[in-house]
Design a protein around this nucleic acid. Structure first.
Lengths: 240, 240
DNA sequence: CTTCTGCATTGATGCAGATCAAGGAGCGCC
DNA sequence: GGCGCTCCTTGATCTGCATCAATGCAGAAG
């Protein structure tokens, strides 16, 4: 029965429930059994967001947590004077809702069209309480995020503009690869401004650095992305 | 019996076990019952480190996890060419061992004399498996660390040198306050170089910024620390 | 087709913080 | 006391990236 929907439906996310969810194995839900997934199904709300639409805003009451199913979300913090730091880009399988107490610790909005699976905070809380293996999975996600954050501190505190851009491109390539899209052409749906705000640079510096890498024949700029021409050199720069 | 040691011993850490541990309530161990603490006691090794001594090294096999009982530990990552980013300073109550898989993700060494409570990885792993409330507590610690890391990204990516120093001083003040030592005099046992490597600056810039703040009558430099003279102004700078 | 609008690129100039280079200042040790 | 050592401060200069300012360019609207 589930199989019908899962195997035959085109839009497997919307209609077939968690069991057929295409990011299930990459997400926190991979820790759950078939019976638990059916339980989960009743609690989840699928939501679609257009590009630039807001998922949630920093310091607002944290009503929901989200699993990203499709698309890209930018996560960022703002200072009162408008300076912005993007703290990460969420891809399918990523979970939003680790680093918050009663209010969201950062803002999130859709880079492109995003489909997400939302849970109310209360449903989420009771799920976590009832299922230690889910908690364990969430903890793995949290420590992984923490490791990434520490890498990013190294990048922001000590690396040059060129190193930052190269590390960013390699990281994005690896993230797409883990999602089953390995390619030397790295999709970059976000704007130059987003990249700049993620890397602690200005848009001009990002642009100049990409042109320099193009002139070096290290990369090739393509529509909505970059093709990596000399990954050996890039890995070398990223390591050192 | 435990009470005797706990109440009467001067060196309560070494002899009286976990129940008498002075950082228990601030540490991950606060989630454990009295019986569990006795169990824990058998698994823990108290260790002392002199200033500058190494607790563990990045990329080495992760043999142990640690609760810091006393003193300060610097946590840092190095690039092959020697550039260093300090990713945090651990104080009593802090747990070291969240962000690692089989190898340590960063290096750690003692800033001053440190006393720590160590557990083997295997003991730690089985403990976590057996006790969901401990896992929950660890997860809280992890998400808190993640929030701090995100704040630090904002600081490193978008704040000026003066803002970085001021945020740092206020954060250290608040951390000491939480440990029951609230004071306008903030102890800074780490070197200027450590502060610089934490804030993504050079030692000269840290020094100059501190002298500027002194001339402003915002702070007063005292031996091994700083007295905050104008916290209102500092809070204002930190917020904006 | 033209104009508009929102990025992205490119160039000229400026400046915050890095780098280079001397001194202090505290402190243990002979 | 004097010497060496480490850490900190201060000054002079340099530079990588920011800032300021056009210009390009592609898709949307008219």
């Amino acid at each position: 029965m589930d199989c019908q929907q899962a195997a035959c439906g085109n839009d497997s996310r919307r209609d077939s429930g968690c069991l057929a969810c295409k990011v299930r194995l990459a997400s926190v839900c991979a820790s759950l059994s078939v019976e638990e997934l059916e339980e989960l199904n009743a609690l989840s709300h699928h939501t679609a967001f257009d590009a630039k639409e807001t998922l949630f805003v920093q310091d607002h009451p944290a009503h929901s947590v989200y699993n990203i199913v499709e698309g890209m979300v930018r996560l960022y913090k703002l200072l009162p004077d408008g300076r912005r730091q993007i703290i990460g880009f969420a891809l399918p399988g990523d979970f939003l809702g680790l680093a918050m107490r009663d209010a969201f610790g950062f803002s999130a909005d859709a880079v492109d069209s995003v489909s997400a699976c939302a849970f109310s905070r209360s449903a989420y809380a009771s799920l976590v309480n009832a299922k230690p293996h889910l908690l364990r999975r969430l903890h793995e996600f949290a420590t992984h995020e923490l490791t990434l954050a520490q890498e990013q501190m190294m990048l922001l505190g000590r690396r040059s503009a060129e190193e930052r851009v190269i590390c960013f491109l390699l990281t994005m390539r690896d993230r797409w690869a883990k999602l089953g899209k390995p390619s030397v052409t790295v999709p970059l749906p976000m704007s130059r401004q987003d990249i700049a705000d993620f890397l602690g640079l200005t848009i001009e510096t990002v642009s100049r650095t990409l042109t320099k890498l193009t002139k070096d024949k290290t990369i090739l700029i393509v529509p909505d992305g970059v093709r990596l021409l000399n990954t050996d050199h890039m890995e070398l720069v990223a390591a050192a």
